Simulated assay, not measured.
Amino acid sequence: MSLIAKDPQARIDHAIDWSAYLAGQSVIASVWSVHPADGLTVEDAAFEPGRTSVRVSGGAVGQLYRLTNRVTLSDGQVDERSVTVRVEER
Results as ranks from 00 to 15, higher is better:
Val83Asp: 01
Arg11Gln: 06
Ala60Pro: 01
Asp17Gly: 07
Val34Glu: 01
Gly59Phe: 00
Leu64Cys: 06
Ser74Thr: 15
Ala15Lys: 11
Ala45Gln: 15
Ala45Lys: 14
Ser2Lys: 10
Ser57Phe: 00
Ser2Trp: 04
Ser82Tyr: 11
Ala46Leu: 10
Ser53Asn: 11
Glu80His: 14
Arg11Lys: 11
Ser33Gln: 12
Ser33Phe: 02
Glu89Asn: 12
Thr41Arg: 12
Ala10Met: 07
Thr52Met: 04
Leu40Tyr: 04
Val61Tyr: 06
Ser26Gly: 08
Glu48Gly: 09
Val54Cys: 12
Gln9Ala: 12
His14Asn: 07
Gly58Val: 11
Gly24Asp: 06
Leu67Val: 00
Leu64Asp: 14
Ile4Cys: 02
Val87Asp: 02
Val71Phe: 03
Leu22Ala: 08
Gly24Phe: 08
Ala23Leu: 09
Arg70Ile: 05
Ser53Arg: 15
Gln63Asn: 13
Met1Ile: 10
Val87Ile: 15
Val56Gln: 02
Thr52Phe: 02
Asp7Val: 06
Ala29Trp: 04
Gly76Ile: 13
Gly76Asp: 07
Thr41Asn: 10
Arg11Ile: 02
Val83Cys: 05
Gly39Phe: 03
Arg90Lys: 11
Gln25Leu: 01
Asp17Tyr: 07
Arg81Gln: 12
Thr84Trp: 12
Ala20Tyr: 06
Leu3Val: 15
Gln77Glu: 14
Tyr21Thr: 09
Asp17Ser: 09
Glu88Gly: 06
Arg70Thr: 15
Val42Lys: 03
Gly24Trp: 09
Ala5Gln: 14
Trp18Gln: 03
Leu64Arg: 15
Ala29Thr: 10
His35Ala: 10
Leu64Ala: 14
Asp13Phe: 01
Arg66Lys: 14
Val34Cys: 05
Ala46Gln: 11
Gln63Phe: 07
Val78Gly: 04
Pro8Ala: 02
Val87Tyr: 01
Gln77Asn: 13
Ala5Asn: 14
Leu73Lys: 10
Gly62Leu: 07
Ile4Ala: 05
Thr41Leu: 07
Asn69Lys: 01
Glu48Ser: 15
Gly62Ser: 10
Leu3Pro: 01
Val27Asn: 02
Lys6Thr: 05
Ser2Gly: 13
Ser33Met: 06
His35Leu: 05
Gly58Leu: 08
Ile4Gly: 04
Val71Glu: 03
Thr68Cys: 12
Thr72Gly: 05
Val83Tyr: 00
Glu89Phe: 07
Val56Pro: 00
Val61Asn: 14
Gln9Asn: 12
Ser33Cys: 04
Trp32Gln: 01
Glu88His: 10
Val61Gly: 08
